[in-house]
Design a protein around this nucleic acid. Structure first.
Lengths: 358, 358
DNA sequence: AAAATATTTGTGTTCGAACACATTATATTT
DNA sequence: AAATATAATGTGTTCGAACACAAATATTTT
């Protein structure tokens, strides 16, 4: 098992290795009779191609292009970049090279420009986070026409037949946040859902999180117990941001818990610290350094880690799986919703391990 | 980078490929002068052997032996077995074969017998959970003498120079359980640490968990707020088990939380359900089907997943990394402490993905 | 029926590393 | 100095799959 070779098949089917090869790859023409005979033997012997030999001989270089936001503009994107580079290193052996096309997440034109550059380079595969939805559509068309597989991550659009989407179940993560909030609040109180958003493109995401969060309380018959309110904050204007929060706090004396749908929980934590408020629990997203800092201080209670590094890593891996190993990849991969506290934090910030396989 | 071959080195160093090969493997004799010259070129060109070519030509079969408890006796061991089989499947390409030697975890003699069988088979590498410490020592000696690398998992003994230890940080997991308990109890109350143990061999483990748990409250100045008590229960005698719990519940009216240090949280959950007690929160370990059942019902609040499947998986992978790829593996690998609730459960029970790399 | 063309099948080289074996250079013995 | 031993280096085959090319059939055209 597992060590049947093309020659074995050839001899058993009484043909040459070349013919078996043609049958395997639908290359050249093979008579129906022979083809069926060979296919039967392949099936009977349970043939599995030796991927090492295959990779060795097909001396192709697979250049994957990654279209990603500049982490210097939004540090959230540092983790995917890391994941991408990790995967590249792991796959170097298989002649996989990743070119990064970095754009400014606040500048549509930069996005388009880089997407064009990327397309012009005619890569074997593409990984991207399509944060500008509308602008991405024409590229999807082009890539499909050129038979270039693309994998999406972070932003869930699966309508356009990517090779795969890798990301998070936003709704479920909100639902989970609901559980964590409820678990920490034995008594009735007010709970705030805060969207601290800078780009409209995230809106769909955030709404799903809010929905999941609210539905947790509905499904568990807790709507009478808790008063759930919402707000949208803009931290570009710091004075305004503070003012908004001040009035919220003042008008909501029984506010005990805040769920921040973006990775900006640290903004709220910093505000509360500044105002010396300690009785409000905070649940947020993502292991940004600033979030981690407040998590360690105890100012943030939980962070839901959506594994942005894993997203980059798996994105590249899936492309390689498809291109190099010609194996099927799942259309949808949801990464685990990790609940992170101060106490188990270091397991999620540590480097992942390289795996050798198949 | 990454595509320098032996021939490249040979031509640059003005020797033959055979000589380069001898230098690389310290095989045969090579004059000092030539050796140095070749080594310099290897370094200069930053040569990295092509693992595919290597694996292809070295037609060795690596038979790894796994000494594991029978999951039919204790279902905890089903997950490591799964992980082992997953890894075997992933590594099949590299001619890695895993033989499982299954013993009865309640029978030392069965353990010894299987360990002897395993040793007699003269495997290339060994994976084991040394749950009978004393009895394992002589085998360690033998294996070391025969240069057979062994990887330990689940039970933390690193004194005897295994290739690697893969497991969990028991202390830290107890500490984490402390956090989760405290987070769910705003008001002073009594907290119970319950050891439901059947084997002495686990004692060290369980004590570390208890220590971690207690230290959480000490370090956070919470000892005055909570009354922490402990008990050791034996579920072999069901009547006795129930009686003990009955008296505990009766004598501790403000008992609000139970931390079970073993994977037997479901026993307590079942008891509480039977007695119609709903106000006591439960934190336990491991995603056994019975635990999952109570987690889904809401009777168990959190399960800490110590990733037993991952332990088996990584154990085999590390051995392969060492044997097949001749790469260094970390002496110690702690797997993440996953916090599992009903809401994120399915991400941890799902099959892991196969990875292709290096 | 012979020639031309199309279809089917077989052979040989390649990828990079490992290792057996052959060959050459150097040292030691007689 | 010749014979022999030993050390140093080179050559060629192997692993399994892919693909170019060559050869052998079969089919069509003249």
């Amino acid at each position: 098992m597992g060590n049947v070779t093309i020659k074995d098949i050839a001899s058993k089917a009484q043909v040459s290795a070349g013919t078996v090869d043609r049958v395997l790859h639908n290359r050249g023409r093979v008579s129906e009779k022979v083809k069926e005979k060979v296919l039967k033997v392949i099936k009977d012997l349970n043939y599995e191609p030796n991927l090492m030999a295959r990779a060795l001989v097909s001396n192709k270089i697979y250049n994957i292009a990654a279209l990603i936001p500049d982490y210097q503009v939004d540090s959230y994107w540092f983790a995917p970049k890391q994941g991408i580079e990790k995967a590249e290193k792991d796959l170097q052996q298989y002649r996989v090279v990743v070119d990064q096309y970095v754009f400014n997440p606040y500048d549509v034109n930069s996005y388009i420009e880089k997407a064009q550059e990327l397309t012009a380079s005619n890569p074997s595969g593409i990984l991207l986070s399509p944060i500008f939805y509308r602008e991405t559509l024409p590229f999807f068309e082009k890539w499909k026409k050129n038979n270039i597989p693309f994998v999406l991550f972070n932003t869930d659009i699966i309508e356009h037949h990517p090779l795969s989407y890798i990301g998070q179940d936003s709704y479920q993560s909100g639902f989970l946040a609901g559980r964590l909030t409820e678990y920490g609040q034995a008594d009735p109180c007010t709970i705030l859902i805060a969207h601290i958003d800078e780009e409209i493109s995230n809106a769909a995401h955030l709404m799903k999180k809010e929905q999941g969060f609210r539905n947790f309380f509905i499904q568990n018959n807790l709507v009478d117990k808790y008063n759930i309110i919402r707000t949208e904050l803009n931290r570009n204007n710091f004075a305004e941001f503070t003012k908004q929060l001040d009035s919220l706090i003042e008008n909501t004396p029984d506010l005990k818990s805040i769920f921040i749908t973006t990775s900006k929980a640290y903004e709220i934590a910093a505000y509360l610290e500044h105002r010396h408020i300690r009785h409000i629990k905070i649940i947020g997203y993502d292991l940004l350094p600033k979030n981690i800092q407040f998590l360690n201080k105890g100012a943030i209670n939980f962070l839901i880690n959506q594994n942005p590094r894993g997203q980059g890593y798996w994105g590249i891996h899936y492309l390689a799986k498809h291109l190099v190993f010609k194996k099927e990849v799942p259309l949808l991969k949801y990464l685990p919703l990790d609940i992170v506290t101060k106490e188990n934090l270091n397991y999620f910030t540590a480097e992942e391990e390289t795996i050798y396989s198949e």
